[in-house]
C-alpha cells in the first residue's frame, strides 16, 4: 500500500538548511494500523505531510497504492489527496458555520459526485461514526470528540486507500479520546489502513505497529505486544 524509500526533506531558509527528514524507508501493507511516534521536532509531521501528498520529498521515492507521488503535478496531487487519502487533523479543520453533512460532502463534491449520491454517502458515514442525530449541526454545536468524528466521516467518505490521522486526540478531552480510538480500531477491523501520528504512548498502543522517529530518522519499528483495546 505504502512504499517509502530513502525519503529526505530539507528546508532552506536563506543560507540555513534544516534537515527535517533524512533517509527514511519503510513499507505499510493494506489493512495495517500504524502509529508514527516521536517527540515534537522529530520530523513526524514532515513525514505525515509527505505521506499525505501535502508536500513533496526533497529526495527519495514515495509510492502510494502503486502511484509514484514524488513526480506528480499539483493538480494530480490534488486528485491523489481526494481519492486515496482521508485526512484527520488535530484541529479537526471543519468548515465553520457549516453543517456536518456539508462538511462530509465536500471531498465528494470535489470528486464530481452528483448531489443526491453525495448526501446519501455522507449520511452513511456520519451514521457509521455515530452522528446520525447530528447531521445538521454546525461545528460550534458539537463537542471536540463529535467534531473529530465528523472529520473521520469526511476522511472515510471517498473510501480512501489510507486514513491519515495527525494527533487525532490532541485537541479533545481524554474521556472522548477512547471513543475516537474505538472508531479507529473498528474501521481497522473492517479492513481500513490507518496511519496515525502521535506523541502519546498510550494512544499509540491502540495501533498494531509503532514506527519511532527522532531527529528526522527512523529509530525503531515494532509490533505492539500488549495492544490496548478501546471501548
Amino acid at each position: 500500500m505504502i512504499h517509502a524509500s530513502h525519503l529526505s526533506k530539507v528546508y532552506k531558509t536563506g543560507v540555513l538548511e534544516t534537515v527535517a527528514l533524512s533517509d527514511v524507508s519503510f513499507d505499510i501493507k493494506k489493512g495495517e494500523f500504524v502509529a508514527i511516534m516521536g517527540p515534537s521536532g522529530s520530523g513526524k509531521s514532515t513525514l505525515m505531510h509527505i505521506l499525505g501528498a501535502l508536500d513533496r520529498p526533497t529526495s527519495g521515492t514515495y509510492i502510494l497504492d502503486g502511484k509514484n507521488v514524488g513526480d506528480l503535478s499539483d493538480d494530480a496531487l490534488a486528485d491523489i489527496r481526494n481519492q486515496k487519502i482521508g485526512f484527520i487533523f488535530q484541529a479537526f479543520n471543519l468548515l465553520p458555520r457549516t453543517s456536518a453533512l456539508r462538511n462530509v460532502s465536500l471531498p465528494l463534491a470535489y470528486a464530481g459526485m452528483p448531489k443526491i449520491e453525495r448526501e446519501e454517502r455522507a449520511r452513511k458515514y456520519l451514521e457509521l461514526v455515530g452522528l446520525k442525530d447530528r447531521m445538521h449541526h454546525t461545528s460550534a454545536q458539537l463537542s471536540g470528540g463529535q467534531q473529530q468524528r465528523v472529520a473521520i466521516a469526511r476522511g472515510l467518505a471517498m473510501n480512501p486507500a489510507i486514513l491519515l490521522a495527525d494527533e487525532p486526540t490532541g485537541n479533545i478531552a481524554s474521556s472522548q479520546s477512547a471513543e475516537i480510538m474505538a472508531i479507529f480500531q473498528k474501521l481497522n477491523n473492517e479492513g481500513h489502513t490507518i496511519v496515525m501520528i502521535t506523541h502519546e504512548p498510550d494512544i499509540a498502543e491502540h495501533a498494531k505497529r509503532i514506527i519511532f522517529v527522532r531527529d528526522g530518522a527512523l529509530r525503531g519499528d515494532e509490533v505492539v505486544k500488549k495492544r490496548r483495546i478501546a471501548k
Binding site: D75, D79, R81, N82, F87, N93, L95, L106, Y110, A111
Partner: peptide, 16 residues
C-alpha cells in the same frame, strides 16, 4: 487562507 488550505487538502484544485 486556512480554509483554502483545507479545501486543497480535500482535493480541490487551484483553478476551482
Amino acid at each position: 487562507t486556512r480554509e483554502i488550505g483545507l479545501r486543497k487538502a480535500l482535493g480541490a484544485k487551484g483553478n476551482l
